[in-house]
Design a protein around this nucleic acid. Structure first.
Lengths: 269, 269
DNA sequence: GGCGGTATGTACGCCATCGCACCGCGAAGC
DNA sequence: GCTTCGCGGTGCGATGGCGTACATACCGCC
């Protein structure tokens, strides 16, 4: 699924942009990493790596989309991250670990640059600027994971669905794509019926349209309003983290900090 | 809270062990990192860093416990990680980012080594072995975060409570510690009443005992059986990741892998 | 142009948790 | 010794999601 819908409206599809992590590398870093390789075609449903297995490559999507799915006993799994041309799959290798805890599932077919583990390791040793970019992205991913945990815990299906659609549209560079309720239920960790209900509600509010797996966003601003703040948060945090912007200057509690400590203990009391 | 209960039974308390990350460093790395510093006393309720603010230090707990709490609109927050002498607080700095997305809340008073951001950065540039240890821990944290997301989504309060108690006992090096239902409800992201109910159930099963905040584990094996598998998973993944053990050798789907791709697409209907 | 399979819509009873309210007990402080 | 307050226990109706089952509608294929 997530195939483009040429019949519908090619105008919906924006021009694919290069992978943002690769774009941030110096010319030399990029050349040494990619050599003479060509981007690879990834097909929907393809599993790049099963959880707990060895990572042989990292992938830098161009216009493909990769779902990060965590394993959990008694359930099919739960999507905890979404990777498009803004990121990479295979962060553990960037941290010196050659096992992936997360299943990499191609959720939108398209192309991606692939780099093998050994070459990545060599270039990481050699280049501090490469490390800088990939490690910053590792931090982005950590932010996403913790946000995902809280969002999954507290937000209802409808707002989560809205967020998911927006995030996918961004990564697909299109406002329309193909995905079934069944697949969505797997990603969101809810029943298929739960997705149907939420999707029906969004459709009644004239925010989306869908028909047998073809979903299109018809009111982007409305959908953003209907989604949880996590959508905006994720975008903001990506920018801030990758650009190395200064945090807002606030009172940082350190040293003894007895007052603040008591305050928060009180709040919880 | 999480103060020791000397009256109860000092025998409950095991000898504190040194911070495991520091223990993994070479003598030189460790000396350059810690200089002539002494470990710091951290008091319960103290906030090491608010989410979104600048990280001035990293902390390596010895016998203190630090909760990683993610911010979420409309809620008090949600604990997404627990750091004791097996880890560190301030992973973003190890990845070259000087803002923490997660609140660092001292949840168990005790001591920790503190290293300032600049010195850490210098030593990271200098030492690949230091990078190796800290980046491996960053990976451990990512595994914990994704596990936490799924656990929070799918597991009921009682099993999650059991897991929390076990994890805290491990990090406190004691089977008894002090914590109120109110505080637990904040950590687990549920109502206070929800904790009371779950705790009552565990008590009736003779796995724990508690009285006005003093909780003790009286049947560790039973509590492990009552907790979700996430407890065992976290322990196993920590070991595997930090020791750099080989993954189990399995069929890694790569290249075309059309068969596997079709299979999983089928499963999802 | 009928048929089978896929995708979606709806219904029903159940359960975990929610939000709120109220009560009782025990510890610390006046 | 009495009061106050923090902590834990219980009850009640509401709600969001679950598991299951079944109905409908559409597509592609023969």
């Amino acid at each position: 699924m997530i195939k483009k819908i040429p019949a519908d409206s090619p105008s919906r599809r924006r021009a694919p942009r290069p992978n943002e992590l690769l774009a941030r590398l110096s010319r030399d870093d990029r050349r040494r990493l990619l050599r003479n390789d060509k981007p690879l075609e990834l097909a929907f449903g393809h599993v790049l790596c099963e959880p707990g297995e060895r990572l042989h490559y990292v992938y830098f999507p161009v216009d493909s989309i990769i779902s990060l799915v965590t394993a959990i006993d008694g359930h099919a799994g739960l999507e905890v991250g979404l990777v498009g041309n803004e990121g990479m799959y295979g962060v553990p290798l960037a941290l010196g670990v050659d096992v992936s805890p997360l299943k990499g599932l191609v959720q939108g077919s398209g192309t991606a640059w692939r780099v093998d583990a050994l070459r990545l390791r060599r270039q990481l040793q050699r280049s501090a600027s490469l490390r800088n970019v990939l490690h910053r992205y590792a931090e982005v991913l950590m932010i996403q994971l913790s946000m995902e945990a809280a969002c999954t815990r507290f937000h209802v299906v409808e707002t989560r669905l809205a967020r998911w659609l927006l995030m996918t549209a961004d990564r697909a560079h299109a406002d329309a794509f193909h995905i079934t309720h069944q697949f969505l239920s797997y990603m969101l960790g809810v029943r298929r019926v739960g997705v149907t209900r939420a999707a029906t509600a969004l459709r009644r509010r004239k925010l989306i349209r869908y028909h047998r797996g073809n979903i299109s966003i018809i009111d982007r601003a409305g959908l953003e309003a209907a989604s949880c703040t996590c959508y905006a948060t994720a975008k903001r945090e990506y920018k801030r983290t990758m650009n190395g912007m200064r945090p807002r200057t606030g009172t940082v509690s350190r040293g003894r900090g007895a007052v603040r400590a008591r305050t928060s203990a009180k709040q919880l009391g």
